[in-house]
Structures are given as structure tokens and as C-alpha cells.
Write a protein that binds this DNA or RNA. Structure first.
Lengths: 243, 243
DNA sequence: TTTCCTTTGTCCGCTTCCGTACCGACAGCT
DNA sequence: AGCTGTCGGTACGGAAGCGGACAAAGGAAA
């Protein structure tokens, strides 16, 4: 597609904006490198910036008062955060942190707010992304309720794979356990299952996807629906799907 | 509060709108009675109307291709549906149906869309509600992942209680099992636990809240956070909380 | 090389919850 | 009254996953 190079953005949302909209805030976009585990947003803290990712993966996590936590969504170059900003809300109960290091453009919340209210086209697109992320959340809730750990892990690896260049996802078991809200040894066991079926290759700190189609089959109905919906809403295909 | 009678609406969102905004679409509001288990919206079907509830409870459910399902949100006089309409999306993957019979005002989607783009105040409020519902979804996902069935049941009863007049919630075990995505006998057992602690009274087709404070204590961190956030976002207190 | 820390692998007993099945109780109907 | 369908209670074996603990292995630093 010509407009990839035209705009130079890797971010799917920014790429889909017409030039006339982009010029409104392009100069306010600040490119930054976000290191792993950097906290982009803390619960109930007003957010100074919104982030559009060019690479890497961010993770939206909800925490209960007693300290239990679960991931509810992941964001890569397919999107931005926080979506609360799109809805005109200054702070939310989520914490967002970088799961895999990457680059992002950030923009002051105040500028984003102004652009959203001035430019219908920008608002429409970002609102549609907000819906896409809500759908992702919904399927996460479903998965948490009805799927087994190995299926959820497969789903999660696929979602990361969609947002990464290449086959490697560099994360520790401990970290994945937090994301899936399960015990760490359960992740080890589940990874062994996937590895035994030659769907992935797992070594210290890294999971490599070896057979994506097989992984999708293994995940059964845990994976796929919200990716289709993303495609429908944003008009861009998510990741490296082979189906 | 004086403005309750001024507007005559029970719906918290409609009540919070200034008169100047209400007049824009008041005449398009059609009051209807929605019977139990009536389907307000089906997956991937464009929605003709948006609903603002005066009483009763609607339930947002997500379904996987293989037929697994889980409730991700409930809506009473605290809100409206579908929120996709607020985000400018014509259809979503959810199915929304009436859980407890009640009254609602409905408005054609096209009219809502027009009002949203013309009236900043309306848009702001409804967008904040969209965020509130997203937060509810997020806590549901967390609860599905980390809480035990009896805690989740307690949470769910409290959320229904918030949206109902009186202490009775009329639903079968079968139905609650679907909502919580668990086995029907598990609901029976969990209800017995709550009844044993004198927190509820349960008979055929009805659950009555007997000790709300106790229920909240039993639910621990499963209940409360998203209700607080609703209060902060909408400026109205949800339900009959005694805390 | 040795030390230390992080990450991963494994084990055990225990609890929760599922799948399935069956029976009794209630309510509406004829 | 008796029939029938819905709803609720119970039981039992088994699987999945937890809590907790500990040992091996890889990597980094001294």
C-alpha cells in the first residue's frame, strides 16, 4: 500500500488517518522508546499523554483492592492507549505497562482532546478502536471463564504474535502467569503441552511460534473472533494471521 | 432530588441531562415494556434502537463460535445499550437480552446518532457511561479469572440488587448458571452457602437479599470497585449500597 | 572459577469445580 | 384428581488447577 510509506507510520490507526487530519497534530507527536515493564499509566492517576505504538506490546491490567490482578487487553501497533481519553475521561482504574519494549508516538492528552473535538474523522476512527478494544476485553472475560489454561495460553501467544515482527516473544513464565492470572508452574506445564505438539519452541525467556496454524487450531474458539471484529472496525488486518 | 420529578425519568442518564439537551430528542423517546428474556440485540445484527432503562435488568452476553457464553455486563436504570451506538458502530458481537422484565425508553439509532453529533453535553455523558460499562466488563473479566463461584454469585446478586426495587430478584438457578458461566448445580450449592450465612433467602425462582452488608463483606474484593467508578463518572450513586 | 540471582522444572496433597445422572418438589393444566 | 413440564437438590467419580516448597539449570558478575 502506497500510503504506508506516505505517512511513514507503523501504527495502524495513524496510517488510516487522512493527511488532512494528520497535519492537525503531527507536530505534537513525540517519538519515544518505551523500555520493557515501563509503566505508562497507573490506576486512578490522570494521564498526561496518549500513546500510539509503532512496535512492542503494552498490556492493560486490572487490579482488585486485595491485590489480585488480570490482564484484560493487549495493545501493539494496532492501537493506542488509554481509550479513556477517547471517551473524555481523565483517569481510569487500569494500569498499563510495557510488556515488550518498543517505540511509540506520544501526544499530550490536552492536544488529543482538542483534535478529537475538532476533527470528526479522527474521532470516528479512534472511537471505533475503542470499540475494538472493548470487544477484546469481552472475549478475554469469556476466555477467563470457560477455557482451560493451555487454550488461554495459546490464545495469548497468538495475540502477542500478531503484534510482533518475527516469531519470538520474549517473556518469562512468571510474567505470563500474571497476565493469565494463573500460577507460574501452570504456565510451565501448559508450555510443555504446546511444545510437545511442536506448536512452539520455548527456551529461557523466549517463546517462539513454530506452527501458527496449529496454534490457532489448538486454541479452538478462544482465538479469532475479536481479531475478525478488529478487521471489520478498523479496516486493517491484525498481524500475521494465516487463516 | 428535585430534578427527579422535574424530568420524570427514572433512568440515571436521562435524569442527568439538562433540559436543553433533553428537548432535542424527548419526542423521539418511545416508552415500551420489555418482557423477560426479550432479545434486544443479536450478535452482528445492526441495531435499530437504543434503549434507556427505567426498570428491569438487561444482560450483555458474549458467545464463542462453539457456543460457550458468559455475561460481561448488566444494565438497569443506571444505563443504556448498546454502547456501540455511542462509539459510532452499527453492530457488535454481543447479544443483549432482558433478564428481568421492565420498562425502557427506546430511540431510533439514527436519531441518537444525530443528537450525539450535535450536542456536546449529551455526547460527553454517554461517553462517560460507555467508559463505566467498560470498567464493569473489566472487573467481570477479573472476577471470572480469580474468584470462587460463591463470591462471584454474591457479586452478581449485589449488582442485580443495585438495579431493582425491593429485595427480590426473580431468576432460576439455570439462568444464573448461564450468566456466571458455571454448572447449574454449582449455583444451587453456592446459594446454599449464602443462605446458610443468612445473607439471602432463596426459594423457587426467587432470591431475596436479607443482609446486604453481609453480602458485600462475603463478596470481598469482587464487589464495589466498579460501582465506585460509576459514581465518579456519572455522578449518581448506583443502587441501594449501604456502605 | 566461584558466587549469586533469576528462571525453569517437578512434586505433593488438597480444594474446587465439572460432567453426568437421577430424583423429588412444585405449579399449571385438563 | 392426575399428568406433565420445569425447577431445585443431591450424589459421585474425576479432572484441573492451586498453594507451597524445593531442586536444577542458565546467566551475569566478581
Amino acid at each position: 500500500m502506497a500510503d504506508v510509506w506516505q505517512s511513514g507510520f507503523q501504527n495502524y490507526l495513524l496510517r488510516r488517518l487522512p493527511q488532512t487530519s494528520l497535519v492537525r497534530f503531527e507536530t505534537y507527536l513525540e517519538r519515544i522508546e518505551v523500555p520493557r515493564s515501563h509503566q505508562l499509566s497507573s490506576p486512578h492517576q490522570p494521564m498526561e499523554h496518549a500513546y500510539f505504538f509503532e512496535s512492542g506490546i503494552a498490556s492493560v491490567v486490572i487490579r482488585s483492592p486485595e491485590g489480585q490482578h488480570s490482564e484484560i487487553g493487549i495493545i501493539g501497533r494496532d492501537g493506542m492507549c488509554p481509550t479513556a481519553a477517547i471517551l473524555g475521561v481523565d483517569a481510569d482504574p487500569f494500569s498499563i505497562h510495557m510488556q515488550m519494549q518498543g517505540d511509540a508516538y506520544r501526544i499530550p492528552s490536552s492536544v488529543l482532546k482538542a483534535v478529537l473535538s475538532e476533527d470528526r474523522e479522527v474521532h470516528t476512527l479512534f472511537a471505533r478502536y475503542t470499540q475494538a478494544l472493548a470487544v477484546q476485553q469481552a472475549y478475554t472475560a469469556l476466555s477467563n471463564a470457560v477455557h482451560h489454561i493451555d487454550e488461554r495460553l495459546a490464545r495469548w501467544i497468538l495475540m502477542c504474535h500478531d503484534r510482533v515482527d518475527g516469531e519470538d516473544i520474549s517473556l518469562t513464565h512468571e510474567f505470563m502467569a500474571v497476565m493469565l492470572a494463573v500460577r507460574r508452574p501452570s504456565v510451565t506445564t501448559a508450555l510443555h503441552v504446546l511444545e510437545g505438539k511442536k506448536l512452539i519452541y520455548s527456551e529461557r525467556g523466549v517463546v517462539s511460534v513454530r506452527n501458527r496454524t496449529g496454534l490457532e487450531a489448538f486454541a479452538r474458539d478462544a482465538y479469532g473472533e475479536c481479531e475478525k471484529e478488529y478487521g471489520r472496525l478498523i479496516g486493517a488486518s491484525l498481524g500475521q494471521s494465516t487463516t
